[in-house]
Structures are given as structure tokens and as C-alpha cells.
Nucleic acid binder design. Structure first.
Lengths: 219, 219
DNA sequence: ATCCTAACGGCACCGAGTGCCACTCTCAAT
DNA sequence: ATTGAGAGTGGCACTCGGTGCCGTTAGGAT
């Protein structure tokens, strides 16, 4: 805690990134060629020129070789929100959602390959849904903080975040189904306009039923 | 195909349900006592007085012993929507969401136990998120069908379904955190009133950006 | 050039999940 | 009552994902 954990030896960060990329690439290739479930971790490790044990040092699971950068992206979006405290809450979240979309647009080929895989591999679908949920939770958390003090803060935050994420996912899905040919940026922007307009009409309060205690987490 | 596949022998449906219940109960007990990951399937099977192989005939995975009735409940809700074609689309979905809530209210003790487990076991959290997504997909699918022909049908369906599910989950979570003491029914009803009001304000169309082709699924 | 340490990879191990098969138990037909 | 068929059962063996352990290696710091 006193000073930087400056590494005395071992891989440099660039080296780690390079290996990670190599392994991930090898995995994607094998998945595309033989299918996800028919590909074993041993095969990936061998194709990448790495020990099986090392594979699991770079990826927590076989699925992570496909969604390996999720945590980074999530952290990026969280940072983005952190630095957006001057804007209005919901527009800030919409910007964050557009930033998420950009990560897909940045490399359509990879996005399409991942999409094809997730469509047919249950465990990958589960991972993707969990990832989406992570974004939604980050948005909800942010909005809850910004709405703090207003009536129904938690509920409005959850609903608004869900609406934004749903709009994003819908536009993304259509873009992927179109083979990356639609104007995803424009469509998402329009969709989020709709969501923002909707959210503005949330009633000030929802009656006495919501005035009960919110309850502090027991478990 | 010519006549009913009348079962000649084997377990009666009641027998199957009874065994399933016994195994599930044994599993829940062991999970509560020793933790989910520290409990092996062998232990569950032995505690339930069945063979390990039989466990996997009743549950696809160890996680399924906790969320074993998900498929049934999902089918119930789908049926409910199927039979609600006389009502307005969104109110019908809201009723379905209230029906889902009822399945938790029906047995608070089990709901709380599952909640405690899902809070601390990653793989169970993943399963629960996937289950929620199943509901949301069912709602989206239904609304898309009902909105068919109107502008932005798919997008509006996705956003509205997400909002309803988010409201449901938020109310459910607060109820669970309160130790099953809040008036979940009343709170959900109020929250869904808010969602319905919001959704009514969706603009008729979202501009030209959304008028491009929707794309027929290629992959 | 040498030291020092993080990373590597091999090994053994655990547990989830599956295919296979012999056994048994129940019911239907005779 | 006997028999035959079929479904459910459970044991066995196997695959594979994931982890702890440890001797070895390689590459940066001095």
C-alpha cells in the first residue's frame, strides 16, 4: 500500500496483452472451426503455444476467452459516468449507452463472430446476459445516486436504466442481424430520444403505497 | 403418432413430482447448512436416497435443484399472456408481471432462502439473471406481436417489457430485503401504474433513422 | 554478469455432467 | 397366474473444466 507494486520481473504489461490476444485469437479460430463445446481448453492452449495452466491465468473460464474484455469495458463505462456529473442524469446514461455501442462498432467483424457464437452456445448466451446485466446495474446505481432524495428514486433509476439498456440491446441486435449494415448510431440516438421523452413523464409520486419504509438489507 | 403415447410402465407423474420435491428439499437443506459450492451432487443424491445418476435425470444441473420450477412458471406466464388477447397489450403484460410476483409471495420462506443463496453464489446469480431474461423475452415477444404494424414495434416492445420487468424486480428485491414484510403487491401495482403512464407517451415515430429496413435474420 | 522474482507449465486432483448398460418393477396382455 | 415389454433406476467409467501445488525458467533490475 506504501508504494506502487512495481513488478521486479516477469511479463511486462505489453507482453501480457500480447499473449492474451494470441490466446483469444486462437480460441476464436478454433471455436469458429470446430464449435465452442467441441473445442477443449487443451486444444486452445496448444494452438496458442501456451500451457493449459497458463490459459487459466489469462482467462477465468473458457467462456472468458470470448468475452475477455468485458470487465475493462465495464470499468471504462463506469469511469465515463463518474466524470459526467455535470450533465443531467439520464442523458449521461444515454451517452454511456452510446459509448457501449461504439465498442461494438469499432470492430464489426469480431462483433459478428461473437454474435454468431452466442446465438448457438447456451453458456455463452448466459455470459452475455450477465454482462448486459452488469451494465444495467452500473446505470441503475448511477441513476439511483443522482436521483437520491427524490421520490421513488430507486424504482425510477431501475426502470430508466432498464429502458436505456433495452433500447441499446434492441438496436445492437438489429444491427448485428443486418450483418453490420444498419446505421446503428443513428438508430440508437433516435431510440434514446424516445426513452428520454418517456422517462420525463414519470409521475412525481406513486401514491401512498410507495411511502412505506424501503427496508435496510438484512441478509 | 396414431394414438396417445400411453405409458405402459414406470413412474406416475405424481411419483415423479414427489421425488423431485424430495431431492430439491434435500438439496436446499444441504446448501443452507454447508453452502452451495461445498455441497456435492453425491451428497444431495445420498441425502435424498437416490442415485447420483438419477439426480441428473430430475435436474439438468446442480443449480437447477434451486430453480427447478422455472420452466413451469415461465410456461404458465406464457399461457396467461396467450389467453389475454382481449385486453390491451401493456396492461396484459403488467398482469403477467403481477402473476410472477405472486409465485414468490406464495411461499415467502422459500423465496427468502433462494434469495440468500443467489446473493452469494455467482453461478446461481447467473441462473437467476437468465431466468429474468426469459420472462423479459416472453414479454417482449408478446408485445412485439401485439404492436405489429405500428411504428417502432420491436423497439417499443423491448423497452416496455424491460421497464415492466425492471419495476417487478425492483419491488421484488425490496420485498426480499425487507424480509418479506413490505406490501409487495401494492407497491408493484403502483409501480406498474407509473410504467403504463410513461409508456403511453412514446412518440408516434422516432424520425427517419428508424425507417430503414429492419433486416431479416441472416445468421 | 548476477540476482531475484514473477510467470510458466506440468502434475495431480476434484467435481459436474454424460453415455452405457444391466437390473428391476410395474403394468398390460394372454 | 404367467409372461413380456418398457420405463425408470443406479452404478460404472469417462470427459473435461477448473484449481492447488511446485520445481523450473526467463527476463528485468542492479
Amino acid at each position: 500500500m506504501s508504494e506502487q507494486p512495481r513488478p521486479r520481473a516477469g511479463r511486462t504489461p505489453q507482453g501480457r496483452r500480447r499473449i492474451r490476444g494470441t490466446v483469444s485469437l486462437a480460441a476464436l479460430d478454433l471455436f469458429a472451426a470446430n464449435g465452442f463445446e467441441a473445442t477443449t481448453v487443451d486444444q486452445i492452449a496448444e494452438a496458442a503455444g501456451v500451457g493449459r495452466r497458463t490459459f487459466f491465468r489469462y482467462f477465468r473460464s473458457k467462456e472468458d476467452a470470448v468475452f475477455g474484455d468485458h470487465e475493462e469495458r465495464l470499468a471504462d463505462v463506469a469511469d465515463l459516468l463518474e466524470r459526467a456529473d455535470d450533465a443531467e442524469p439520464l442523458p449521461a446514461v444515454c451517452l454511456a449507452a452510446e459509448a457501449v455501442l461504439e465498442t461494438y462498432l469499432a470492430d464489426p467483424a469480431v462483433a459478428l463472430q461473437r454474435f454468431a457464437l452466442t446465438r448457438q452456445v447456451p453458456s455463452l448466451r448466459a455470459k452475455e446476459i450477465a454482462s448486459t446485466d452488469d451494465y444495467q446495474r452500473a446505470f441503475t446505481r448511477y441513476l439511483r445516486g443522482r436521483y437520491d432524495g427524490e421520490p421513488d428514486a430507486a424504482l425510477r433509476a431501475a426502470v430508466a436504466a432498464a429502458a436505456v439498456v433495452a433500447a441499446h440491446n434492441q438496436v445492437l441486435r438489429e444491427w448485428l442481424k443486418s450483418g453490420a449494415e444498419l446505421d446503428a448510431r443513428g438508430r440508437l440516438h433516435a431510440a434514446l430520444d424516445g426513452v428520454r421523452g418517456m422517462a420525463a413523464t414519470w409521475p412525481g409520486t406513486l401514491g401512498t403505497a410507495l411511502d412505506e419504509r424501503v427496508g435496510s438489507a438484512p441478509a
